[in-house]
Write a protein that binds this DNA or RNA. Structure first.
Lengths: 335, 335
DNA sequence: CTGTTAGCGCCTTCAG
DNA sequence: CTGAAGGCGCTAACAG
């Protein structure tokens, strides 16, 4: 700024005015200063600004895994909402590790970011609550707010599980396998709750009607094979599978095929997320769609609102929707 | 820091020493200061540090689209390499828009980031060169360095195209369609060059042997249908399709099916990227694999090296590899 | 080993 | 409308 001021033959504070309150500067002076800026190659210094008290142009985003299409999509929503405000997203993946989550949040707080959007994997939210109190606003994503005094945006996972199960029940299935990730992701467990509710509502006993199986998210072939074996070995054998996400369903589909079963004739399969490829599989996958992009968009929106005077924390809950395609059909026993 | 110093009964600079050079502080004092820090809830202020001259803990990453699996994977590589250094990634998507790329880079530079990793869509790299000269190191990703004085890491796209084409030629195909994105992505064009080279090497005329088609990356159904029609209408009709990426190949596969053709009996299809789902399609997709994660990892590595004394700019080129599966076979005319 | 001091770049009163 | 001055939190000399 000093250099610009010198070249333009004005004082630094005039340059400051050109930057922050251009309307206050004489047009002629303004022009001269702007020319000087390009001549000198002036670039505003963000850190100095935040030190001075201007809100940071950076928002943190802490998700399970940036390379996972679901979270990548959420991040695009965040990014796009923030772009209007010339804000940028500082990302981090927790990889399901609570320690890593803490580390990332700490790093973010040290950067004095405008706020943080978190899809927490650590069930203990007190750290987030404190961070918020200390002055870094926090918005929860894909996690119910509970009794926390924070903004949150989520999808009704229980409903999602229920939709999947009710669809299968309506087709006549009475014994259903539920495939979760190998480690407990809260959202996946909530969906299972929805499945159980639907089963109970249909007058079925959960012990009788539900078969649990697990496979890791990374999905080695072995894991898949084991999960499929587990499902096929259950007595009586289930006639349908609900999977924790579409990628998992893809694997299961493959494993089922390898085991010589036809989908949906011998086994129905339901996915979750409605990723792009779901519609293009053969058979096209019945799945539960979530408004991922909007999730991120809304979260960023809430976060920007945090700085407003008189802000009160809110929770937004989106509804998932069932997308019926061809991987589900009545069980063979009924035909 | 003042508060911490007060509580611990020392001066600010002792607190500073505890933070930056703990070995210089008496163990007893150290302990007392650390206790005071947790008591006060002290959080280091990053922006103040960079103002003072400490290198920023933030690295920028500007890619075409964060939600695109290819770039998401590259970003994970960047993130993981940076995690060792307690560095974070500030991301932005250009969406194929040169103006947006400029804007993002500007914003990043204003944040005084440690450096920037860019997959440039703007063929004009002078802006990047200048940014680098101004003091923000730049590493190019997925783009040849050319005569630029920058570090770069790329995959040999020409070779990738060549591998795909040579595979088809070896199977006996003599007329091949090449599907690009609707807008020119440089990498996709380079692959086409590789295809042309392979055709020429086989003694074929490119005009005769190659049919060009386009479809948008977003991939509306109509676009796909049009591309497929264009391919099927060409006379003589091609017997194989090379697609700009796996997602595109998925669409084409679907379009071909809808048109009543069987893959690979009536038409061979080759994808690009080897995304997770490629192996699970039916038929499993023949495709060209790229080391995406390593691309990002290496780029971050080069960037961290930029700050070292005596650094000279380097270019790293990875080799793609052909993954043969079941979507390719000899053309029907040969059977 | 600990305390004092100056200044990084910017913004915002306040005085001219 | 423009210029001068102070301080945000931190670090690196340097003095004690």
């Amino acid at each position: 700024m000093r250099a610009v001021a010198h070249v333009a033959g004005v004082s630094v504070s005039t340059v400051a005015n050109v930057l922050s309150r251009p309307s206050v500067v004489a047009p002629e002076t303004l022009r001269r200063v702007q020319e000087a800026m390009t001549e000198v190659g002036y670039v505003r210094h963000g850190p100095a600004r935040v030190l001075r008290g201007v809100p940071s142009a950076i928002v943190g985003s802490v998700m399970l895994d940036l390379a996972n299409p679901f979270y990548a999509q959420v991040n695009r929503g965040i990014e796009d909402r923030l772009a209007d405000q010339d804000c940028l997203v500082l990302v981090g993946s927790t990889d399901l590790d609570a320690a890593r989550q803490r580390r990332l949040l700490r790093l973010l707080e040290e950067q004095a970011v405008r706020g943080v959007i978190v899809a927490p994997i650590d069930p203990d939210l007190t750290g987030l609550q404190e961070m918020s109190r200390r002055g870094t606003p926090v918005v929860l994503v894909d996690h119910p707010r509970g009794r926390m005094d924070l903004c949150a945006v989520a999808v009704d996972d229980v409903l999602g599980g229920r939709l999947a199960a009710e669809h299968l029940l309506a087709l006549g299935h009475r014994r259903i396998a539920y495939v979760s990730g190998v480690v407990g992701v809260a959202a996946v467990d909530r969906r299972r709750t929805g499945v159980c509710e639907a089963l109970a509502d249909a007058g079925l006993s959960v012990e009788q009607a539900l078969v649990d199986a697990h496979m890791s998210v990374g999905g080695s072939l072995e894991e898949t094979v084991k999960a499929v074996e587990r499902i096929l070995a259950a007595v009586p054998r289930p006639t349908a599978v609900i999977c924790f996400n579409d990628t998992g369903a893809l694997e299961i589909l493959h494993g089922l095929e390898a085991a010589g079963l036809r989908v949906p004739a011998d086994m129905s399969v339901v996915g979750y997320d409605d990723l792009r490829f779901a519609a293009r599989l053969s058979p096209p996958l019945t799945t539960v769609a979530q408004p991922t992009y909007q999730l991120g968009y809304a979260a960023a929106d809430l976060l920007l609102g945090e700085t407003q005077a008189g802000h009160t924390h809110r929770e937004i809950v989106f509804q998932p929707s069932l997308v019926v395609r061809s991987s589900t059909a009545p069980p063979a026993t009924l035909l």
